[in-house]
């Protein structure tokens, strides 16, 4: 199917049109400078440009902070009955940037490969993604191009590229095509020239860049276990876990049970976000802590993104360069700086 064109000032109407039929989430203001993927209502302010990455990434709509895995009912001497809870409500995530789009793709792999996670996959199956291109970095923290996220398109159902007054609307999946065809839009006859103009306009270099190609970063980080760089970047760390919880590729969770006080015979099991920077993360029953120091936890976090998970999933990076962890760290610890310093140690 050939791409369509949408007038930029028609975007809010189109998004709201979709929102009348489905649950649509679009980045909207939250507080002074923050953005949140909030449900679109009639009065919502819909703007594609100039939004800083949301406080938590859109992928968390597939993996909520608290998720009921199952409910149970005990009945005296009978075998207790356990009933899973799966969320199968339909949703559209609109205005997803390429970095977050790649984050969702990586989470699809984490939750889909090996033993699949039915809770994530149920939501994912019922989720449509309308992503959008970035022509310039959202702010100084961005480094999506350096980790290969800027050009990410693969898992978008619909992909929007805005240039001046027009938005190119491409659909990459059957679901995307159906969605786009529901609205009568003019066909774009000059896709190539549109994309050429976009590439000319796109900032170069795009955001922060590493001094070595991405393919060299994994081996460089793998070679550094006792580097002083780790200590330098952990002095100010609060072990508050913010960097984990706002990361599009952090997926660790804890599990806890609860029961109803009223009858004592029913309850459920819930998965909640956890993070490897939190001090309790690696403590086993009996008290042994496999990573008692903030330094070891920080090193583990960075190595997961650039060494461990890239090796396990054969990916270039498990960091999508959205910059959230550094932006939201009140101590200004930035994973880009850590990696950059590790590179400098080797490269001089």
């Amino acid at each position: 199917m050939r791409p369509f064109l949408l007038r930029r000032d028609e975007l809010p109407n189109w998004i709201k049109h979709l929102a009348r039929e489905s649950q649509v989430y679009f980045p909207q203001r939250a507080g002074r400078s923050g953005f949140r993927f909030k449900q679109v209502r009639e009065g919502s302010l819909i703007q594609l440009e100039h939004y800083r990455p949301t406080i938590v990434p859109p992928g968390k709509k597939l993996f909520p902070a608290e998720e009921i895995l199952f409910r149970y009912q005990t009945m005296g001497d009978e075998i207790p009955v356990v009933t899973p809870v799966l969320d199968a409500s339909k949703q559209i995530l609109a205005g997803v940037r390429p970095c977050d789009l790649k984050g969702i793709d990586l989470m699809d792999r984490v939750h889909g490969e090996g033993v699949p996670n039915p809770h994530y996959l149920s939501r994912r199956t019922h989720t449509t993604i309308i992503a959008c291109d970035c022509l310039y970095p959202c702010d100084d923290a961005c480094f999506c191009d350096a980790v290969g996220s800027l050009g990410w398109r693969k898992n978008a159902d619909v992909f929007l590229t805005a240039l001046d007054d027009e938005i190119l609307v491409e659909s990459f999946s059957e679901r995307g095509r159906t969605l786009v065809q529901r609205t009568a839009l003019p066909v774009c006859d000059a896709v190539d020239s549109f994309k050429e103009r976009v590439d000319v306009r796109r900032s170069k270099p795009f955001g922060r860049q590493f001094s070595v190609p991405l393919s060299q970063i994994g081996p460089i980080i793998a070679g550094q276990w006792s580097s002083p760089v780790w200590e330098n970047h952990v002095q100010r760390c609060f072990s508050c876990g913010s960097c984990n919880l706002v990361c599009p590729t952090c997926y660790c969770f804890n599990v806890r049970d609860d029961f109803e006080l009223s009858d004592g015979s029913s309850g459920g099991r819930t998965a909640t976000w956890d993070g490897c920077m939190l001090p309790t993360f690696s403590i086993v029953a009996g008290g042994h802590d496999f990573r008692p120091l903030a330094l070891a936890r920080q090193r583990h976090r960075v190595k997961r993104k650039f060494q461990y998970l890239t090796q396990r999933f054969e990916e270039g990076a498990f960091c999508v360069g959205c910059g959230r962890c550094g932006r939201q760290c009140t101590a200004n610890i930035d994973i880009f700086d850590i990696v950059n310093d590790l590179i400098q140690k080797v490269e001089g």
Binding site: R32, G34, C240, G241, S242, T330
Partner: peptide, 28 residues
Amino acid sequence: PANAVCVECKMAENECVFDQGETCMGQV
């Protein structure tokens, strides 16, 4: 759990107090 208030701020998707130009005791 001995976790900072920041954990629950992120779970609630709050804008960080520091990004609002204020200061906060949440991290400690």
